[in-house]
Design a protein around this nucleic acid. Sequence first.
DNA 1: CTAAAATCTTGACAATTGTCAAGAGCCAAG
DNA 2: CTTGGCTCTTGACAATTGTCAAGATTTTAG
Lengths: 189, 189
Amino acid sequence: MTEILEQYIIERFRKRPENLDKVLLNFEFKKVKRGTHLLTQGEVCKYVYFVLKGCIQVYILDKNGNEATRSFYFENGWVTDIFGFKNQRPSTEFIKCIEPCELLRIHFHAFQAMCKEVPQFDALYKEILEASYNTTVYRVNTLTSLNALERVQWLMETKPLIMTRLSSKLIASYLGISPETLTRLKSKL
Amino acid sequence: MTEILEQYIIERFRKRPENLDKVLLNFEFKKVKRGTHLLTQGEVCKYVYFVLKGCIQVYILDKNGNEATRSFYFENGWVTDIFGFKNQRPSTEFIKCIEPCELLRIHFHAFQAMCKEVPQFDALYKEILEASYNTTVYRVNTLTSLNALERVQWLMETKPLIMTRLSSKLIASYLGISPETLTRLKSKL
DNA sequence: CTAAAATCTTGACAATTGTCAAGAGCCAAG
DNA sequence: CTTGGCTCTTGACAATTGTCAAGATTTTAG
């Protein structure tokens, strides 16, 4: 089941890295139902997940118990709670499969070993980290500089997949607005 | 003028890395006045800056010309527009010295060379990247899950330096609220 | 396929936050 | 040390967004 990840890595490097088989051996296939939690607040995140199929939501709960979504991950996305994973400390976030998912996961120890032993794996991690940081910076900028309507428009333009594939409730939790507000803003487009 | 950076790196590694002198040679000292822009929207970011003294604001302008601050950097902070720098493409952000600053800067070419030639430098970069990403993730979570008052409280608890050292106007632009709202919320604490 | 559950939409109203204006106060550059 | 410019505060009001409730619609699990 690691063929998709294999293909993904080959395309990223535009060639087959020498130690690819060694890397792939560390990944374990998991098929999970819609609604399954991969991580709960307070738990220590032991894995990095690669999404083969499905969609994953990373969120926290506010004081009223409402979900505030940090990010969604689709096919070929890499998911973890970076801080909790890196330091093996309890997480503040929830990671949930919001569609039936097929995943590959790599354990903390294996991840660390690969980073140390396989330079290409470390390079891949660095690239993903840079891209993730960049995405998150943009997200901060949209949250501080745009009002609700502008954020909806921004989402449609830059992340149409989220708009078309996910429920309004999830989209609203990603935009930081209530579902009712989203319904009303849609009619203003 | 690279003694402070030297000390910073030694403390980070808990020993003196072999190639430290080679790395330090690539940094250039700059002393700049309050208000100086290190980067303007549309410009290509050619440097990574290390703050020896002073404070730097990274912000964008919204459609009404109001500043929305992504981040502040104080002593021992690393600043750049990561996406524009990495890809040498026009930036969407402004980088401004909001206090008289003393800086060390490293040019894009030198930065790339150091990442390639000095593994410790690359490791340092990765660490800073991880920490920055993590900080930004938390920032997204506060922006989506907390209201204005809660964000002020959060800022006081987690980043007291911002609250005490910077003007209300700047703090408001960081929290994504108007200066008037900040004034009013302060009286509710 | 069907029943139960969750989501979406709409209305009425409340709460939060923004805008504009004006005076007081403070700070920084010379 | 002084002065001009910027910031802070406050009030009045407007705009945006949230909350609650209820019915219609859609989706999901068995």
